[in-house]
Design a protein around this nucleic acid. Structure first.
Length: 825
RNA sequence: GCGGCAGUGGCGGAAUUGGCAGACGCGCUAGAUUCAGGAUCUAGUGGGAGCAAUCUCGUGGAGGUUCAAGUCCUCUCUGCCGCACCA
């Protein structure tokens, strides 16, 4: 009897071995193909959760597999270390955010290391360290230099609980992404990155990402929200004003029966001034101001509006139409003003019906009424233009082009594209972030901090207000400075940057994490970038992944990077659930990875999490499933240790011609498993089926054990391959067993096994015989049988003859190597 | 409302190109071992009928295409995710 499977000492032993021998340390090596495997770095909350375990287990299988396949694998880890929780801890418990964050990093690093992931820890980064955020500030300066960072007074999303503004992307259903507090609108002067300049490229280049899930690409596409149409101006009747409108349906411009301005539109006040409607309009504008964003944008709520008393002229036909203001027109989109065509737009239709505004049909579908009174809903389908003067008879598509052409020729308007994507608001009124490197001087105005003065250091000695207000605003020695241009006393920007700025370029930093002069060197990014495989949660589909793409494109444009897309392949892992719900403290269904690793070991935890579900799908946590994984490793341990001494001396035979049936079978199963596991990892990331193939090989070995006559060479081959195939999933136990069976070099340094096609050639194969599509018999035929021979053998089969007796055989279909279908009548 | 994904035993899931549905694991049942429990080992395990050989039904539902459908087509139900007055 051998030793029992003592995962604790085995895991500690090999983690130490890997670390001491720097097995996972990499450098650029032009002789070898590179592979950059990256998992989204965590926020150091202080506790590893199952989502992390899943994420990093997936990444580690890929990294270890690719390494054994001969790639030079970069597999780094770091910390997305700026952010609000650190500051909240400071307010609540009086711990400095830096200390809180560093303690958490220490704790989580230990937890991560106990998982045995193949990280090159020498490349570890933390975004809150001055040597990192120095370059986040550098990024800001470069964007500023290239007119892609600007400060503007705008209506912004304000979270009263977090005491800071939020980017559009961080507002979910009108509430703060972090704390779910209802977001307020505020007028503030804030810094933005001009991501909208890249809208078209961000959209177009999605095409260049075949390795991304369709779902993520669709989400980004919708978020960018490109729409094509035209912008034109309408004169205000009797005033020297024009109103620009954007429409995607210029073909319906003859059907305009009114127009609508957003209540916040700057012209509203002007055009109703002195009119009898003025008071009513003001009331309405005020009322809208106090409706929350959620209610305002809810589709359920009936549209409301008021007439301004003013009229506009339709430039195409000279018609005078009333100008309304209504809550369904948003100032943020397009020009904040629309032409209303109730006959062909459902929202306009609803509004027109409510306020008895005229409806005029200008597109005639095949079976649609011509009389607007018969219209029960807006007609938005295809058709021919009517009531549209010289444009009558054109289709919708032809009409759009013709009208735009006419407008351009007559200087009424022009073709235009609108995006839903807004510029990225990056200012945060918080302390624990990278300070925006800007100085305000009375004479020189806005002055960027010179590169050589970076980093603008966060002062450490600060006091946190219970209100959550940023202490930076009150620290004189921070904000009081001198102008870099004229030397006069000046004031520093006290806002910090959104943490998404830090995470938009960290994957570049991993390539040369210790460089002091540059965020990264081109030599290293030219070798490593782009990331070959990126793995993380779907919740970053828009935010992080779009910002990172934007940064990469910008860095490409300023010649810092040679790639335009940062992540070639993206794997979005599903959530880890318990009792059908996401694990959360409030639900009390959290399973702690630390506990699981303590009880069963990292190999078991990894095996279970990879086996339970394919990576993209949600995974239901099961204690019994974990035990099943643990049992499997124990069985592997027992079997291999039992054989260990016996197979040490055995030689894997070069040829396998002379084997008996059972041995041949084991040899076949070994090579079948190599083939299956390789393709499951490489082509499909289906780790669950790869593991089941390994289990099948184990089961074959286990039943072979009872053979009276054993070929130890074939057993050795099977065991060696079993360990090699299992090693990316459960590296510790495989290292130990690899050593016990007489190998003295780490299994990680072994080449990935290759299957021998000859071993997969079988003498006999089983063929299913169907009668009229139902399986009635299985027959064994020589593997090299022709279709005709298979056909004959099945027809001669006693059972088949019996079942077809007295029936007419209509047709026989032979599927090579698989089945025969005899169709009878 | 629009877009996407999914629905297969008691459970997690497999079936990669239209070709034997349920691999692998969990659970369960019986047996062996054990003072007992646990662990381990052996056998069985989709439903229904039958002593049995076997028959029959079966991939959310209803149709269809095909020699053959979990897989393709049409309609439909349910769940999840994203967007949501975007002009």
């Amino acid at each position: 009897m051998g030793k029992k499977y003592d995962f604790k000492s085995i895991e500690a032993k090999w983690q130490k071995y890997w670390e001491e021998n720097k097995l996972f340390k990499v450098d650029e090596n032009p002789q070898k193909p590179k592979y950059y495997c990256l998992e989204m770095f965590p926020y150091p909350s202080g506790n590893l959760h199952m989502g992390h375990v899943r994420n990093y287990a997936i990444g580690d299988v890929i990294a270890r597999f690719k390494h054994m396949k001969g790639f030079n694998v970069l597999h780094p880890m770091g910390w997305d270390a700026f952010g609000l929780p650190a500051e909240n801890a400071a307010i609540k418990h009086g711990i400095h955010p830096a200390k809180w964050t560093n303690d958490n990093i220490e704790k989580m690093r230990t937890q991560l290391k106990s998982m045995g992931i193949s990280y090159d820890w020498d490349r570890e980064i933390a975004t809150c360290k001055p040597d990192y955020y120095k370059f986040t500030q550098w990024m800001f300066l470069k964007l500023y230099e290239n007119n892609l960072a600007y400060k503007e007074k705008a209506t912004v999303n304000w979270c009263p609980s977090c005491q800071t503004v939020l980017a559009n992307e961080q507002v979910i259903n009108g509430a703060c992404e972090r704390c779910e507090t209802t977001v307020e609108k505020k007028q503030l002067e804030q810094w933005f990155f001009k991501i909208t300049n890249y809208a078209q490229r961000l959209l177009d280049d999605l095409e260049k990402l075949p390795g991304w899930p369709e779902k993520v690409k669709i989400m980004q596409k919708n978020w960018i929200g490109r729409s094509e149409g035209c912008e034109f101006s309408m004169h205000v009747d009797g005033a020297d004003e024009t109103i620009n409108v954007f429409t995607t349906r210029p073909d319906t411009v003859f059907g305009v029966t009114y127009m609508v301005l957003a209540p916040e539109h700057p012209l509203v006040e002007k055009i109703c001034r002195g009119k009898p409607q003025e008071a009513q309009v003001k009331d309405f504008v005020n009322k809208v101001k106090y409706i929350s964003e959620i209610d305002r944008t809810s589709a359920e709520i009936e549209k409301e509006g008021v007439f301004t008393g003013a009229h506009a002229i339709n430039p195409m036909n000279g018609e005078k139409v009333p100008i309304w203001i209504a809550d369904y027109v948003l100032m943020e989109y397009g020009t904040g003003a629309i032409m209303a065509v109730p006959a062909h737009d459902q929202r306009d239709f609803d509004f027109a019906k409510k306020y008895n505004l005229p409806i005029k049909i200008v597109i005639q579908g095949e079976n649609t009424p011509l009389d607007a009174d018969n219209l029960t809903e807006a007609y938005t389908g295809d058709g021919k233009m009517v009531n549209s003067g010289e444009f009558n008879g054109l289709t919708v598509e032809e009409g759009k082009k013709a009208i735009i052409k006419y407008m351009e020729k007559n200087r009424i308007g022009k073709g235009a594209v609108n995006y839903r994507l807004r510029d990225w608001l990056i200012s945060r009124q918080r302390y624990w972030g990278a300070p925006i490197p800007i100085i305000y001087c009375e004479d020189c105005k806005t002055v960027p901090v010179p590169e050589e003065d970076l980093p603008v250091l966060l002062p450490e000695d600060v006091e946190f207000k219970p209100s959550g207000e940023s202490p930076l605003k009150y620290i004189e020695k921070f904000y009081k400075t001198s102008c870099p241009i004229c030397g006069k006393e000046a004031r520093r920007e006290t806002d910090t940057m959104d943490t998404f700025v830090c995470s938009s370029w960290y994957f570049d930093r991993y390539c040369s994490p210790h460089n002091d002069d540059m965020p990264f060197t081109k030599e290293t990014t030219d070798y490593w970038m782009p990331v070959d495989q990126y793995i993380g949660g779907i919740e970053h589909a828009i935010l992080h992944l779009m910002y990172a793409r934007f940064f990469t494109k910008f860095l490409y444009d300023i010649d810092m990077l040679s790639c335009e897309e940062p992540f070639t392949n993206l794997l979005t892992q599903g959530m880890v659930l318990k009792d059908g719900a996401k694990m959360s403290k409030s639900k009390g269904n959290v399973v702690s990875p630390e506990e699981i690793i303590k009880t069963y070991g990292a190999d078991t935890a990894r095996l279970f999490i990879l086996f339970a579900s394919p990576p993209e799908r949600d995974l239901e946590w099961s204690e019994q499933g974990v035990e099943g994984a643990y049992r499997f490793l124990n069985r592997v341990w027992r079997l291999v240790t039992e054989y260990a001494e016996k197979i040490k001396a055995a030689k894997v035979p070069p040829g396998f011609e002379e084997l008996n049936q059972a041995t041949k079978e084991l040899h076949f199963k070994t090579h079948f498993a190599i083939k299956k596991v390789t393709s499951d990892i490489e082509e499909r990331f289906n780790f669950n089926t790869a593991i089941s193939a390994i289990m099948e090989l184990f089961n074959a070995l286990n039943s072979y054990k009872d053979q009276s006559e054993q070929d130890l060479g074939v057993v050795k081959e099977a065991i060696n391959n079993l360990l090699l195939l299992l090693s990316p999933f459960c590296p510790h136990i495989c290292e130990e067993l690899w050593q016990i069976t007489g190998n003295n070099k780490s299994i990680y340094l072994q080449p990935w096994p290759r299957y021998n096609p000859e071993a997969l050639v079988q003498d006999e194969i089983e063929i299913a015989v169907q009668i009229s599509g139902k399986v009635k018999e299985r027959i064994k035929v020589p593997a090299n049988s022709s279709d005709e021979q298979i056909r004959q053998i099945s027809l001669q089969n006693v059972k088949i003859q019996d079942l077809t007796k007295g029936k007419k055989i209509v047709k026989i279909i032979v599927v090579p190597q698989k089945l025969v279908n005899i169709v009878v009548k």
